[in-house]
């Protein structure tokens, strides 16, 4: 759990933290790989929602260097398979995500990230 697709969609939302709040930095993470069902149509439809550099960086931090710096124009099966693996098969089980701007720590335990804010962080 906490697949990279999720990491790519979460930004720090503490009060007043509105810039440089994405992507969250990964810290002390334990990773597991698990197979997921491949669906090319889903990937093609979802690619427009991805922040590409953030995904490539996160994958490289976790030791996966299969993705190019820019999304290719031709989305062939070979590329989609790599994207599938990075988005859906790498799971962060333990560790934390840290806001690059306000340094808020979002801990991950048993694969579930705690994104709750403290009282002084809500508007």
């Amino acid at each position: 759990m906490v697949r990279l697709i999720t990491h790519n969609l979460l930004a720090c939302h503490a009060k007043g933290c509105t810039s440089n709040n994405f992507p969250l930095q990964l810290k002390d993470v334990q990773v597991e790989l698990r197979d997921a069902e491949y669906n090319a149509d889903f990937l093609r439809g979802f690619i427009s929602r991805i922040e590409w550099p953030a995904l490539v960086d996160a994958a490289r931090q976790l030791g996966d260097t299969s993705l190019p710096n820019e999304p290719p124009e031709m989305m062939d099966d070979d590329f989609l398979q790599k994207l599938h693996h990075v988005l859906l098969e790498i799971h962060i089980e333990e560790g934390a995500m840290i806001c690059p701007n306000c340094a808020h720590v979002y801990p991950i335990s048993n694969g579930i990230p705690n994104m709750l804010l403290a009282e002084h962080e809500i508007g």
Binding site: M1, V2, R3, I5, T6, I112, N114, M115, L116
Partner: peptide, 8 residues
């Protein structure tokens, strides 16, 4: 189940 997150 893509992910489960704790938040309001």
């Amino acid at each position: 189940i893509i992910d489960l997150c704790t938040f309001d």
